[in-house]
């Protein structure tokens, strides 16, 4: 499994044709306490850059854009009842969606962990 990162602070873990997507620890720390999540319906086709989900803290609502194109194969609906998990384990149990990857070459435009860490240093 390889994990990629986007400049919009999402992580994309790839295993075969499937990508698991969530937001990074940095993103959750910037948002503050997450209170609500809106996830896409399973089966929805997302093009890279489409609005995939909405994550809300008390004073902010942020859109999560699809880092890659593909079909939503699973949504982590359990998060809806426990939005606090996004703060507790953003890069593990609090994944948002799983997607069937449409175009693997899009992954090349993402960062690896080292590059992402370097990117965070610049913020």
């Amino acid at each position: 499994m390889t994990t990629y990162y986007s400049k919009d602070h999402e992580w994309v873990a790839v295993e075969g044709d499937t990508a698991t997507i969530g937001i990074t620890d940095y993103a959750q720390s910037q948002l503050g306490d997450v209170v609500f999540l809106e996830l896409p319906d399973v089966g929805k086709t997302l093009a890279k850059g489409d609005e995939a989900a909405v994550v809300e803290s008390v004073k902010a609502a942020s859109e999560v854009y699809a880092a890659i194109s593909g079909d939503v194969s699973e949504a982590n609906d359990a998060l809806a009842d426990e939005p606090a998990k996004v703060n507790e384990d953003p890069e593990g149990a609090a994944w948002f969606i799983k997607m069937t990857i449409a175009n693997k070459s899009e992954l090349d435009e993402l960062m690896d962990e080292v590059a992402y860490k370097a990117f965070l240093e610049t913020l």
Partner: peptide, 12 residues
């Protein structure tokens, strides 16, 4: 539930 409102959500 202020995130529904204009002062946070603006055009959305």
């Amino acid at each position: 539930l202020s995130t529904r409102e204009q002062h946070i959500r603006r055009e959305k």
